[in-house]
Design a protein around this nucleic acid. Structure first.
Length: 293
DNA sequence: CCACTAACCTGTAGGC
DNA sequence: TGCCTACAGGTTAGTG
């Protein structure tokens, strides 16, 4: 599930309980998720004071006083939930939460203001994973990764540089984390709709001979930024009060213009087209064949 | 290097 | 109710 906006929301939901807290105990209910936990994983975490949580692409990063960082990728179905006495509906005195199916990791933290909490990672499909790293640019997870779409390294020109002379369909190119980090199936469909670009369009066709981005590519970069920012805002509104984060972090409702709307009317006023679904490199693409060329 | 497929794993929705 | 198939928000190993 989680793409950049969801991971940002998860990070923001965890931060009030984890930033500045001490990790008291880490429980692994199995020895691997998608990959084995790294050797010494529990020892590297227990006893550490946590710095300020951050996000890179679809990873939540937990900095530790030791200089190491823990990272978590939620895969398709990963989520965190928080058990803390401040959370709505929780017992007044902190007590361990009832175990649920697919709870794989439990991190007990003690926060100086919010007291003890359990941070529980649940992941039915186990496509998620956790790892440790010291330097971000030396970690294999980040080494070849493209820029943050919400950072200042990202622009239409950056995409033009990556796309020049290539014949990859734009849909696949935007899912490729080396071009731009953090996009997934939903927000790629949404951004292409906003920019009016057909998902099959070959990326080289969006670049002029002199290497400058064509008009539609100029529209795409801000479309990506806007789609992500709006989704983050929608997720953020569900977190306004951390007392309501008792449930899962990782899933929130958002209205999409194309995603999962096969056969429905295009939302563009002047368009009488219907949203189509095609399959590109094994994944569903939703788009309006009339608006997107 | 490029483009595509299969694979990882479990749950759920829909057809019959 | 049950059985079967298709599909799900991500990544990566392998193929040609």
């Amino acid at each position: 599930m989680p793409e950049l906006p969801e991971v940002e929301t998860v990070k923001n939901g965890l931060a009030p309980f984890m930033d500045g807290a001490i990790i008291q105990k880490v429980t692994l209910n199995r020895e691997n998720l998608r990959f084995p936990f790294p050797t010494g994983f529990v020892g590297a975490l227990e006893g550490q004071r946590i710095g300020q949580l951050r996000r890179r692409a679809k990873y939540v990063i937990v900095p530790l006083a030791s200089g190491q960082n823990m990272l978590a990728h939620l895969g398709m179905s990963g989520s965190f939930r928080i058990n803390n006495e401040l959370a709505e509906g929780a017992a007044r005195k902190f007590e361990p939460s009832k175990a649920q199916k697919h709870d794989h990791v439990i991190i007990n933290v003690l926060h100086p203001e919010r007291g003890p909490a359990e941070i529980i990672y649940n992941d039915p499909r186990r496509f998620g994973y956790m790892d440790l790293f010291i330097e971000e640019d030396q970690s294999p997870h980040f080494m070849n990764m493209g820029p943050e779409p919400l950072g200042n390294q990202f622009s239409a020109q950056h995409l033009a540089d990556r796309f020049k002379g290539k014949r990859t369909p734009i849909k696949s190119a935007l899912l490729d984390q080396r071009n731009v980090a953090g996009l997934g199936n939903i927000y790629v469909c949404e951004a292409l709709f906003i920019a009016g670009i057909a998902p099959q369009k070959q990326v080289g066709q969006l670049v002029r001979a002199n290497g400058a981005p064509k008009k539609s590519l100029e529209l795409l970069a801000p479309a990506i930024v806007n789609v992500l920012n709006e989704a983050i805002e929608a997720g953020g509104s569900s977190l306004k009060d951390f007392k309501h984060t008792d449930g899962d972090l990782g899933y929130f409702q958002h209205r999409f213009k194309t995603y999962d709307r096969e056969g429905e009317n295009c939302v563009t006023d002047s368009c009488n087209g219907k949203i189509a679904r095609i399959v590109q490199s094994g994944r569903s693409t939703f788009y309006c064949p009339k608006c997107q060329r």
